[in-house]
Design a binder for these strands. Structure first.
Lengths: 191, 191
DNA sequence: AGCATGTGAGACATTCTTGTCTCACTACAG
DNA sequence: CTGTAGTGAGACAAGAATGTCTCACATGCT
């Protein structure tokens, strides 16, 4: 196996392992390296060849989550059109990654002392900018701060993913439920 | 020390230990028994005399959370007046327990195989009943299911508690932010 | 004083997870 | 065929957390 080919295949393997690890840890956040390996269909030794340890695995998952978030931000074109529609596009684009996001959202609470990944700060900034844009254009109310709306979006994505996984809401309603609640709220508008 | 007095003091101690454990685990969900004991100002041995093990401690915290939730449900008088105001009273009453709720909300994901505490089912039922009542009275929209509204409330309580702990929103705005977002949403009403 | 109770400190074995290493096996390229 | 690379299985030690136990000390009652 040539040098080039080796690296290409390893990268593929690594990504697939990462995906299955994400899927498993989304359901059981305390899964051991052995369980992660078995879920990926490889041995613990091979898992360790891909990721130096559990820490490295979580870091890689974090990088994957940031990557998918930023990809979703690109797809959603947050700067174009009404902010409400941009939020809708965003949630739709981010839905596949919601489970992983949910895992990372709770996992981040463990990185207490250490600084959190710079990528999250950039994503936060782009989200708050979106909500701020909505406020300045008159679409969104100004008494709910952009920072809170961002945090609430994370929370709703997490509970949405959890509710879908538990079967309490249909997967096809995920985006609708979140966007409608975040933007419109539960109160019936008499319009 | 008499028999009666013994039990009374133990109960007091136990409750205080439980409170401090809740406060600690809310911030660091992976704290060890040793850390929990130190945070409570007692030794690990004494902690073990109160709670047979970490499992028993978490169970006791779960019972405490259920207890405080049901107390909040009573205080909020969910059956009286407009459903929207009942939601407001509920969030205000449940605010002190939001941190503990947040901890239990994520911890529950670990009780995968086992059945969850029956108390949560009762609380869920009362919350969905509240949202259903709001729908039937015409206050709430009918396209967001009561089950989802209940789940979303949990999620918003969790992110609210987290955002306050991180200093991203002011503690005094906790109830307002959650209630306004849950009921009114981010979109500005042109009324 | 004498006694009982609760506590803190620490030792100890146990269990679980992790990280490292070795060895045999398979697939594939030359 | 032969060597090389990757893998799986398993052994192994190290570390952390838990659960249990003992012992000395303090407190308060009789």
């Amino acid at each position: 196996m040539s040098h080039m080919l080796y690296h290409r295949l390893m990268a593929l393997d690594r990504d697939q392992v990462l995906r299955s690890a994400a899927a498993l840890l989304t359901r059981k956040s305390t899964a051991t390296m052995d369980e992660v390996a078995k879920a990926a269909g490889i041995s613990r030794a091979t898992l360790h060849r891909h990721f130096a340890g559990r820490d490295a695995l979580v870091r890689a998952l974090e990088a994957l989550g940031i990557e998918e978030c930023e990809a979703a931000l690109e797809v959603a074109r947050l700067d174009e059109g009404p902010a409400a529609e941009a939020v809708h596009r965003l949630v739709r684009a981010i839905e596949p990654a919601a489970g992983l996001l949910s895992f990372l959202y709770t996992e981040n609470q463990l990185f207490e002392g250490e600084q959190q990944h710079q990528g999250w700060a950039r994503i936060d900034e782009r989200l708050t900018a979106l909500f701020r844009r909505g406020q300045e254009s008159g679409e969104f109310r100004i008494d709910l701060t952009p920072a809170w709306l961002t945090e609430a979006l994370y929370g709703l994505l997490a509970s949405g993913a959890w509710a879908v996984a538990e079967g309490r809401v249909a997967a096809k309603d995920f985006t609708y439920m979140i966007v409608e609640l975040l933007l419109g709220g539960a109160r019936r508008t008499n319009a």
